[in-house]
Design a protein around this nucleic acid. Structure first.
Length: 139
DNA sequence: GCCAACGTTGGC
DNA sequence: GCCAACGTTGGC
């Protein structure tokens, strides 16, 4: 199983919206970036990902699971764009903020830090463990 | 609200 | 195929 990170502006599509969809999940549509699309093509059902709120909040707020592999994005006729479906699994007990991540040397290589504009990114096993731990432990 | 970084587009 | 111009994203 691999790990990923999904980034969204809460004003457009936030964690609460994702939770409201329940186990049925929702398309992660609207991605118009080749790198991000290519990562989605690599995803498999059962893979897990962090759900990150960009802009004002800037924190990982929950965990999602991939429930459908890449398929055409229903929000466009352009067949270049594909998306996966994801569902909310569990919220973080404590959101892990971008500031915390930047302050953690072992997380300095995360795409979130290095390439802040990439909206779908891979997360290593090690990074996954560290962030998870930060998300359940008091600071 | 500003600006830097980056990706995409289109003219040549 | 290159590169300048432009649009968008996201942190600050």
């Amino acid at each position: 199983m691999r790990y990923w990170l999904f980034k969204s502006e809460p004003s457009t599509w936030g964690w609460d919206d994702q939770v409201a969809k329940g186990d049925a999940g929702e398309e992660w549509d609207g991605v118009r970036n080749y790198q991000a699309r290519n990562f989605m093509r690599e995803m498999q059902v059962g893979d897990r990902g962090f759900f990150y709120h960009s802009q004002k909040e800037r924190a990982i707020v929950g965990i999602v699971e991939v429930i459908a592999e890449a398929h055409p994005d229903s929000t466009t006729d352009d067949d270049r764009w594909e998306c996966v479906d994801i569902k909310a699994v569990t919220p973080m007990k404590r959101p892990v903020t971008l500031d915390q991540i930047k302050a953690t040397p072992d997380l300095a290589e995360m795409a979130l830090v290095k390439n802040s504009r990439l909206s779908v990114q891979p997360v290593t096993d090690e990074e996954w463990k560290i962030v998870l731990n930060m998300g359940v432990t008091s600071v």
